[in-house]
């Protein structure tokens, strides 16, 4: 593959002038197959992102130009470096998040691709650049992920070379990131559904216990269901013990049973 000399200007704002890469330049067939495997295999979003970062770095690395990849997400309004392909990416992501400013966070917040062709001459984000220039990173490319508001994430690419990202590299990175974002979107949906299912299962178990305890209180005190709940809730708040835990103790006192489980088809 020939290296085109990249222009030192960053690409912000002029994506329409890029020429379309030929298909042989970025063949994503294998990448897609592996993404599908990841979706099926990974139970955890962090694991998924870890694999995605490694795959993205591998896909974009060329002879003589090693690319490191990190993923930063917004969690409870704060940026968190959640996954990385190696220590360089992790280190740079964490430094940037500690400054709360830098190319990747700008990409994340403005939803535009941000390019730093040479960290030694870059004028923006001076604090971060001073630290970045002391590491062996030469250039940085940050691409926000389109996740249809389910989450906010940015792919951070680091080259050890200055001008490490040519126009073609940028196009390749854009396609890889867009493809990764689609998979991440799906992974997030799967994860949300799994969480909802787990929470409902837990709710069914808990409710069975609580209803049983409420029945016991009703029989013992000859009171209404509402009054029984009131007694249970008072016991819980006075002793600062969870409602479910109070219910478990009531049942255990009557029958010695500690586990009341609702049959639930997984």
């Amino acid at each position: 593959m020939t290296e085109t000399q990249p222009s030192p200007t960053h690409y912000l704002g002029s994506p329409s002038t890029f020429r379309v890469p030929d298909e042989t330049h970025v063949d994503l067939t294998e990448f897609l197959t592996r993404l599908q495997d990841l979706l099926v295999e990974n139970a955890d979003i962090r694991d998924f992102l870890e694999d995605l970062a490694t795959m993205t770095a591998t896909k974009l690395t060329k002879a003589g130009n090693t690319i490191a990849c990190g993923v930063t997400v917004i969690r409870q309004k704060k940026p968190i470096a959640i996954a990385d392909s190696d220590a360089l990416a992790r280190n740079l992501d964490e430094i940037q998040n500690s400054f709360d400013d830098g190319p990747c966070l700008t990409a994340l917040r403005t939803r535009t691709i941000t390019h730093v062709p040479d960290v030694h001459t870059e004028q923006r984000w001076p604090e971060y650049m001073r630290v970045a220039a002391a590491t062996n990173v030469g250039s940085i490319l940050a691409l926000p992920m389109e996740l249809n508001s389910t989450a906010e994430a940015v792919v951070n690419l680091y080259s050890t070379r200055t001008h490490g990202f040519s126009h073609d590299d940028l196009l390749a990175a854009e396609r890889v990131t867009a493809t990764g974002a689609k998979a991440l979107h799906l992974a997030l949906k799967i994860s949300q559904l799994r969480d909802a299912r787990d929470n409902l299962t837990a709710a069914l178990q808990s409710r069975t216990t609580i209803d049983t305890a409420v029945g016991i209180i009703m029989a013992q005190n000859r009171c209404s269901r509402d009054a029984a709940f009131q007694i249970l809730a008072s016991a819980s708040s006075h002793r600062n013990i969870k409602l479910r835990e109070v219910a478990v103790r009531i049942i255990a006192r009557i029958s010695g049973e500690h586990e009341i489980s609702a049959a639930f088809e997984e």
Partner: peptide, 12 residues
């Protein structure tokens, strides 16, 4: 909201 509702359902 969904998480809160599920929890509330679970405590009766």
């Amino acid at each position: 909201l969904s998480r809160l509702w599920t929890y509330y359902l679970g405590i009766g």
